[in-house]
Design a protein around this nucleic acid. Sequence first.
RNA 1: GCUGAUAUAGUGUAGACCGGCCAAUCAUGCAGGACUCUCACUCCUGCGACUGGGGUUCGAAUCCCCAUAUCAGCACCA
Length: 485
Amino acid sequence: MLEKKEKHKRDTGLRPLENVGDKGVVMRFAPNPSGPLHLGHARAAYLNDYYIRQYGGKYILRIEDTDPKRVSEENYQLVLSDVKWLGIEVSDIIYQSERMDIYYDYCEQLIAMGGAYLCTCDAEIFRDLKNTKQACPCRNHTVPENLSLWKDMLAGKFEEGQITVRVKTDIEHPDPAMREFSIFRIVADTPHPRCHARVYPLMNFSVAVDDHLLGMTHVIRGKDHIANTRRQKYIYDYFGWEQPTYFHYGRMSIEDIVLSTSAMKAGIASGEFTGWDDIHLGTLRAIARRGFSPEAVRNAMIDIGIGQTDINFSWDNLFAANKAIVDPIASRYFFVPTPVLCHISGATEHIAHPLVNPNDEAQGTRSLRFTGAVYLPGDELEDGKMLRLKDLFNVRVTETPDGFSLEYCGDSLDAARTEHARIVQWLPREQALRCMLHTPEGTIEGLCEPVVTRELNAVVQFERVGFARIDEVSETGVSAYFAHK
RNA sequence: GCUGAUAUAGUGUAGACCGGCCAAUCAUGCAGGACUCUCACUCCUGCGACUGGGGUUCGAAUCCCCAUAUCAGCACCA
């Protein structure tokens, strides 16, 4: 039994969790609504989701919207719809902006027990003191003084930047990151779309309070939070709470893709990108548009796992994961890139019936009627070569001063095989629809089967070209996005 | 500068906590082959890695130290 478990563990990739309670685990996905979700978010979302599915329990979607400068009404919707696309098992949605009173209350408690003080020092001055392990004068406030300042802060008696609440840690802590960090600030002039606050908790406070109140058993987040975990320990200790079990996964860099929200925003504003779903971006919307399924992203992320090592995200691995999902179900069609119209002499009318999916004959066939002229991929035309038009017949190519002339040379597949003729995709002159195939490297103009129009939003395989998602169809043409080979 | 972490094939990952069964797993990629009316799928074969140096030990990918490289934090962002 144990041996079996060991083996299973390896198959699924992620190591088992310790400290799992009777009711399973409570974990969270906690995005900040400052833009749409991207592949980096997907990793956090799926790693947590993996364990919820494994052990049962609760998966809390916590919207961390305590910085009014970074949130907007539009972004909430983006995040929610992206979460939906991910298909994770969310049991509750919490908005931190609705919990301000809770944070204020706990802050007051923390002040009352001497764990925090109000600091009116200028941020830069404080930083210099902190860097030389010196306490600022505010650290000596008495508890009543602090409580009174806290009330004044809440009452609006200070301007933005004039006062902050700091946790009393250890001003001589060897790690400068641990010394007396801030947990509340004033944001005066930026209204919050969802609450009427002026005093906002900083992440280390709201996260610690919420993780405890919501009963988190395990937290999986990026290693940029390692220091925060240790800072939050001070808060847990003051309140006598027990910290959850943490995992901090490493940095993931992604080649050839724009990931930072600010860079994306700038690019969209300048017109470099068409929008959040521009295929040069690493947003989930872009990934979806290119024809990747959430399951493929999930599998790729679980495969990457939870390690602290910094990694290079590999498109190859995502391609393979997506292919595994899409190949069995994608309908096959002909797409002819850089098409050349060719007349074929010596052939009678034929109707070809290529399989919609060669691995599943039940999906039927499509039919292409040859009446004398076809479009062929320009790259395949070469003087003297025999070509096999897939599911149709063989032709001999001759180069002439004004192009290529093709001559019918039999139906025999065996003949084509013995001559090592390439089997190529083709389209009848009468059954060819304009098709723009967009790839991150550029757009390929071509033609496709007219029935592709019924595949809107589906991923198809253009034979010998690759998988693509049909993004737009009209009577005059099709727009498709290339996923991978 | 200070603090903390990480380092296994081209890429990702297992093994490291509890040293030997690891001349190192699986996937992906690449190369070759079989199958196939797609350069897809499936199948077979092959390629390819323990950052470096010391130490502990009968024995080290695994423990310790140093070096190097990379990353993170040191915000009144998350």
